[in-house]
Write a protein that binds this DNA or RNA. Structure first.
Length: 271
DNA sequence: CTGAAGACCTGCCTGC
DNA sequence: TGCAGGCAGGTCTTCA
């Protein structure tokens, strides 16, 4: 489901509802999502202090050095309800707080996963150790990406989606950013010029910011914490638009499968 | 080493 | 109406 903008929208929704709340009880309806769930019972009696984000992971920071890292996979959703609200379908985890609020995790496909680590040392955890830079930080710039792609024969779209190169850019935003930059998704990464790499990076940053401001993208099942959809999907220029006319040059937008993922592009203005 | 493909799991849509 | 097949926003593992 979510790429970086969607995870950030969820983080911003959860932060004011959960920070400062103390855990009263934890219920797991299943032993595992994608991986076995950690023993969340250790959080009982502890207070959620901040919710942060790294790549597509939400990080719930508790007192006493507990950090709960959570990846939403494709269909994971968090909702904050009251503790007496009924259990929804595919609701796998609930964390009740002493003030009566209740954090629910739903995940139809169960591709999500969670782990407990320490606030002071999460960077060394296997999930985080080898991640590339955050795309919205200044260290991610055209020069960085150009150097990262040198001699790489993989398609530029694969590099954009590779979390070791840069985090948070998934299938949708990779397609859209390449369209805006006029770069063909199958173009070998090592053959994109320095100048075009600068342009591409600018578009990646722009599109992620626009999507965050719009509350994320909803194609089928992304919702914000309050249940509202995201609105950015209305702004897609190529994603999901196979057969339609390119908004820029009028050529017919094509869909092709790259490494098992759908890629949408305009053969007229992406080279 | 790199890159491609399969696996995880469920639901929805399409076409026969 | 029913059913097979394809498809879905992520990431890890396996294989060539």
């Amino acid at each position: 489901m979510p790429e970086l903008p969607e995870v950030e929208v969820v983080r911003r929704g959860l932060e004011p509802l959960l920070s400062g709340r103390r855990v009263q009880s934890v219920h797991c309806a299943v032993p595992a999502l994608r991986y076995p769930l950690p023993d969340l019972g250790v959080l009982v009696g502890h207070t959620c202090q901040h919710i942060t984000r790294r790549a597509k992971y939400l990080q719930f920071e508790f007192d006493h050095d507990f950090l709960l890292a959570w990846h939403l996979g494709m269909t994971g959703q968090f909702h904050v309800l009251t503790s007496n609200a009924p259990k929804a379908k595919h609701e796998h985890v609930r964390i009740d707080f002493t003030d009566g609020s209740s954090l629910r995790y739903r995940d139809t496909r169960r591709f999500g996963y969670a782990g407990l680590m320490s606030v002071s040392d999460w960077q060394s955890h296997a999930w985080f150790r080898e991640l590339g830079p955050e795309p919205l930080l200044d260290v991610f710039d055209g020069e960085y990406l150009y150097e990262r792609c040198r001699n790489r024969k993989a398609p530029i779209k694969h590099v954009l989606m590779n979390a070791k190169a840069v985090v948070g850019v998934g299938n949708i935003y990779a397609s859209e950013a390449l369209f805006r930059a006029g770069i063909h998704p199958a173009c070998k990464a090592g053959r994109v010029s320095r100048k075009r790499m600068h342009i591409l990076v600018q578009h990646v940053k722009e599109i992620l910011c626009e999507a965050i401001d719009a509350g994320g993208s909803t194609i089928s099942d992304f919702v914000q914490v309050d249940g509202k959809p995201g609105y950015f999907a209305f702004g897609f220029q190529v994603y999901g638009r196979k057969g339609e006319a390119c908004p820029r040059c009028g050529h017919v937008i094509r869909r092709k499968v790259q490494a098992g993922r759908s890629t949408f592009y305009c053969p007229g203005c992406q080279h």
